[in-house]
């Protein structure tokens, strides 16, 4: 058990997560790893509401995440964060993440569009590429039923 899927999405928990991802992976628990949300009462409440009470939801800081994950290691955990770098840091701290799903990183100044829902800056792209050396799968998929795209392979190909 432990983490079954870690999703990167700047909107954290939203429609796709609540209806498709949770149903498809039948997880026991969502852990949102985001410092800003964890330190904000309203955001924490909203995130806990988002899965309509069907799945236990915790919101924690990057610091607190390791503990929360360890305490619930016998459950099927779905992680949510806004950026891939969060998962790299968690893995550096010894958390096992089998599958990182790059879902939604949206348009902003300085970012370039790679997929319909993924826009990256140079640094963000490098962070995704750096995940290659870790024991994890990094893929782009919009909903569980979409085809998995090996995002590292594709980004490397674009670099050449």
């Amino acid at each position: 058990m432990g983490v079954v899927l870690a999703r990167v999405d700047e909107r954290l928990i939203h429609g796709q997560v609540a209806t498709a991802w949770l149903k498809s992976y039948l997880v026991d628990m969502i852990i949102v790893v985001d410092d800003e949300s964890a330190n904000d009462e309203l955001q924490t409440m909203l995130l806990k509401m988002a899965a309509s009470g069907t799945v236990q939801t915790e919101v924690c800081t990057l610091e607190g995440a390791v503990n929360t994950i360890d305490e619930n290691i016998n459950k099927k955990i779905f992680l949510c964060a806004k950026a891939p770098v969060v998962y790299r840091e968690l893995m550096d701290k010894g958390i096992k993440i089998p599958d990182i799903n790059i879902g939604g990183i949206y348009a902003k100044e300085g970012r370039k569009q790679y997929y319909s829902t993924v826009f990256l800056t140079k640094e963000e792209k490098d962070i995704i590429l750096s995940l290659e050396t870790y024991d994890t799968k990094v893929e782009y998929r919009m909903v569980p039923n979409s085809n998995e795209i090996d995002i590292i392979e594709e980004l490397k190909r674009l670099e050449d």
Partner: peptide, 20 residues
């Protein structure tokens, strides 16, 4: 920030309650 904090979770509720 408030707008951003509201939109994701409310979409989660809306999609599963109203649509789903």
């Amino acid at each position: 920030a408030t707008k951003t904090a509201l939109m994701g979770p409310l979409a989660g509720i809306g999609d599963s309650v109203f649509q789903g």
